[in-house]
């Protein structure tokens, strides 16, 4: 038994990647998670109509940045996500229109506004008329949370499936054999892409059917568009899996890439609320494809956005697929003539 332990240490000492995964990755991940848990309170922007100065001060004290704008500008700010709510006063009392794309933000903003209105200086009626631009009470937590989680799992499983399969192709020598046929690397990558595209399409259909069927989540936009997004996200996972398995030396290394490449996609893409994180960590999300997938899923499922509204997200996802796919083809060309 001692000999076995010694042998394992000898192997570990000569495998810096495994050592890094054993010691550095957990520290890094726990530190990142601590940033979410120990987050500072966030000041949210709230657009407001004409409000008395004392109410503006109460809103400020409640942790809200109130900006006086016209009703039209407020609607535009809500749609773009710049403002979390629009508060106005009418003869029947205060009216609050919550943006609603994030249930956590909506809940905090609503609570703070109620707190500001209830301040002794206000003398305002506590009867706050609340409406939602997106979502709302009819949308349960599942309807809010499942679409982005679904996007992540489609990406993750496509990565694992394609990564391991392509690596086996390499390790069992069949990739070299394939590269010795008239098949071009582009044809090999495209073949993988098509096969896993079909798997992803079936997987997406099953997952969407489960989420919006028996699990009872609601969606506001087009189911076909959600299907298309699912396929794009899964293809993103496929190209990443193919690329990293081209670079990896063993199945184990494909797994080792998970904390480095996959976990940040779960943490910084917006599945978890990012408002409370330092700015530079929020910016990490901008380079992750999952950020655009999560945004598109939310905008279709919760905000009922159409194809043209999520064109930017789709462009980024397609670019990610094409760039990584192209990189993989280039690497295979190099491997063909090592």
């Amino acid at each position: 038994m001692l000999a076995l332990t010694v042998r394992l240490f000898q192997q570990l000492r000569r495998d810096p990647r495994t050592l890094a995964m054993a010691f550095v990755a957990p520290l890094l991940l726990i530190w990142l998670l601590s940033l979410f848990v120990g987050a500072k309170a966030v000041r949210y922007r709230v657009d407001v109509g004409a409000l008395p100065p004392s109410l503006m001060q109460s809103l400020d004290r409640a942790g809200l940045s109130a900006h006086q704008v016209s009703g039209e500008s407020a609607l535009s700010d809500l749609k773009s996500g710049r403002a979390a709510a629009y508060l106005s006063l009418s003869t029947s009392g205060p009216r609050l229109l919550l943006q609603g794309a994030s249930p956590q933000t909506a809940q905090v903003v609503r609570m703070r506004i109620a707190q500001a209105l209830a301040a002794p200086a206000q003398g305002q009626s506590l009867h706050l008329l609340v409406r939602y631009l997106y979502g709302g009470p009819g949308f349960g937590a599942l309807s809010y949370e499942l679409p982005p989680v679904l996007a992540f799992f489609l990406f993750f499983f496509a990565y694992i499936l394609s990564g391991i399969t392509f690596l086996r192709e390499r390790l069992q020598g069949t990739l070299e054999r394939l590269l010795y046929t008239p098949l071009r690397p582009l044809a090999i990558v495209s073949g993988y892409f098509a096969a896993f595209g079909v798997v992803a399409a079936v997987q997406s259909a099953l997952v969407l059917a489960l989420v919006f069927g028996p699990l009872g989540a609601r969606y506001a936009g087009s189911l076909a568009l959600l299907g298309l997004l699912s396929l794009l996200v899964a293809w993103g996972g496929v190209v990443l899996g193919l690329l990293l398995s081209t670079l990896a030396r063993s199945e184990f290394q494909v797994i080792q890439f998970i904390p480095l490449v996959i976990v940040p996609q779960a943490l910084f893409s917006g599945i978890l609320p990012l408002d409370s994180l330092p700015r530079w960590l929020q910016d990490v999300g901008a380079v992750l494809p999952m950020t655009y997938a999560v945004d598109a899923f939310r905008r279709v499922a919760i905000e009922a956005n159409g194809f043209s509204d999520i064109g930017g997200d789709i462009t980024v996802l397609l670019s990610f697929i094409l760039v990584l796919g192209g990189l993989n083809v280039a690497l295979l060309h190099r491997r063909q003539a090592a």
Partner: peptide, 20 residues
């Protein structure tokens, strides 16, 4: 490295590269 050879040369590696 000429791609035309791929149709004219048969190559068999030392290890059996097959799909189980």
């Amino acid at each position: 490295h000429d791609h035309r050879l791929r149709r004219r040369v048969g190559y068999m590696a030392q290890a059996d590269a097959l799909y189980p």
